[in-house]
Design a protein around this nucleic acid. Structure first.
Lengths: 189, 189, 189, 189
DNA sequence: CTCTAATCGAGACGGTACGTCGCGTCTTACG
DNA sequence: CGTAAGACGCGACGTACCGTCTCGATTAGAG
């Protein structure tokens, strides 16, 4: 497609994709992912209908792209949770980050988008985990299961928190996450 | 003199619905829920296409019905997990039950059907939990969150277990579930 | 069906059919034939749905029955039109009869019912005509065409008359029918 | 520089509609209009099913379009019938035209399509008639009735003629039309 | 006046066609 | 001469109505 494989991928493409991601995000705050149509996205993004498919194979691919970016940033904050000595403090940091982007994450973790997010999350989790020298102790839980569980349970709790009418204070929910998920998971290693 | 004069729900309907549930179950073992069409279900069930909609509003409603029944039975075994003194043994019992219906539960907990199952599960969990006298201790985690977490995490682990190429021995996976989910959740109360 | 071919055909059947005809007639005054459903007819007639098909093969058959009866009576008045010496007076008599049942005939000759009525009419016309000793003169128009034309044109004019907002006086429309259809047709013999 | 900058209706649409009209025409020669399904039309036209509805609201609308075009051409020949001094010769011309497209007109004037054709015909007739300076003489028949009658009776006779096993010679049927319909109608003015 | 069979009410069901919606491809007309 | 606009093929959906069928509950009319 582009002339030179590695270098600048045409400013227009960058702009168009940003438009599409922004449009999807905007729509996600109004209605669930599965009811958002490609046409609605392109209208919102002020982009030609067919143009969408020049950039993404389908809705899911766009969501994937969107999710990957948000997750990448989030994980920058969330991974230290496991690495840090003070997991409790790490959990607080995680929820503080989420709280700052409350509406975005509510959109992503509620409705039809959630499974895709979940999958992407676990995938990232696994990848990051594999970078830590994983000394597989013989009769411990499989690393894969531990990562899956920790990731899934964490976003489950985040989703629950975001879904509440009046949110629990960050201190409290962070404590719960720590006691219910993080500590037990680390103890399994 | 029929048994109950007013509420007998026509034997034909009972038969038809059973056919439809059976058909969906059969198809679920072959392909993911979201790719199963209503037509495929009715063909499999040897039932007229329009008849489907006389019983269920859509695919999801059928899955809901199917799920509710399977879950009702499963929960009969799975609830003692929390009530019993020996949670470890209860976990083993749970996985033994699952193992006996391995392919059914793999179908239900994998692919597009999972989110619906998850929702139904949590709902049932909440309901059962509310029957236990729930003494809300002041600064404990909200009961709702604990139920949601325990339920979701449990089926997450079950789904993971069912998805593995060669399954972990029941003893082992049951121990993991116990340590990773059950014990911490009970400790929160 | 009935035990003895000629005699009393069960009072219930007579009642039911009368109900159905009455229901169709009532509905025809409210909406066009093609949009009347069998279910609507049976509801109106306060008769079970399946019962309809015990008496008529389909909607058309019911309309046929209804039409045959009304036409039989009408033709009793309308045939003299051709036989009488004074065709003009006969036409007046015809329109006077129609006027007395204005709404019924408007329903029958308007909308989807019209073609069926037309066909039944021509059929009856042909039949009656064949009873008159038909001396086929060599180069005259075929009797079949003359009957078809006279019948079709007559009901066309009746339908037009019934469809007008304010109706022409009977004297006038009768004169038109006489000059436009009857006289020319008789002249062709 | 295209011919007309604003209103050019996309060559694809023109092609598709022509295909649909052609398909309907083809099918009409094989079976009656009411038994032709939209799917049959689209199959015949080698066009997607949904595409049909992007062009026509329903079967009737397509027939309307088809009819309007055929009638427009036919009326070009048939109107002179009334205008010409020699109505007899005009009738002959009309039937000669019809004879050349015998099978097309048999399809259009037979079966379920007839009523729609009839309606369209009368409509066109009225329209053309209104272009002739219509001096409404006081006690003559209403112009509207005369047009309706002449049109309906004419196509009735044409339909009868087309429906005969061995057709009457054009000379003869034209004479009948002239004497039975045209002359009387003109005499009413 | 009773008994027996025809008729009826109710409504589930199989089936056919409809018209809609959304996706992803591919053509076309315009800038 | 590239690109947005949008027509198109496809396939699933959910609806409407038809005509068939079973099942009991009535009810007519023969004995």
């Amino acid at each position: 497609m582009s002339r030179r494989p590695s270098s600048s991928p045409d400013a227009r493409q960058v702009r168009t994709r940003a438009s599409l991601r922004g449009a999807l995000l905007g729509l996600l705050e109004r209605e669930p992912f599965e009811r958002i149509t490609v046409r609605a996205i392109t209208n919102e993004a002020r982009v030609g209908y067919a143009t969408f498919f020049r950039h993404y194979a389908d809705k899911e691919a766009l969501l994937d792209d969107l999710a990957a970016r948000e997750i990448a940033e989030l994980l920058g904050k969330s991974m230290p949770v496991f690495a840090a000595d003070d997991t409790r403090r790490a959990c607080v940091a995680l929820f503080e980050y989420i709280a700052r982007r409350r509406s975005l994450w509510r959109a992503l973790l509620t409705g039809g988008a959630a499974p895709i997010l979940r999958a992407r999350f676990v995938e990232h989790g696994r990848q990051v985990a594999s970078e830590f020298g994983t000394v597989a102790s013989p009769d411990a839980s499989p690393i894969d299961l531990r990562v899956t569980h920790a990731t899934a349970a964490t976003i489950e709790i985040i989703a629950w928190w975001l879904g509440q009418a009046e949110a629990l204070p960050i201190e409290q929910i962070a404590g719960i996450l720590d006691r219910l998920v993080i500590t037990p998971t680390l103890a399994e290693a």
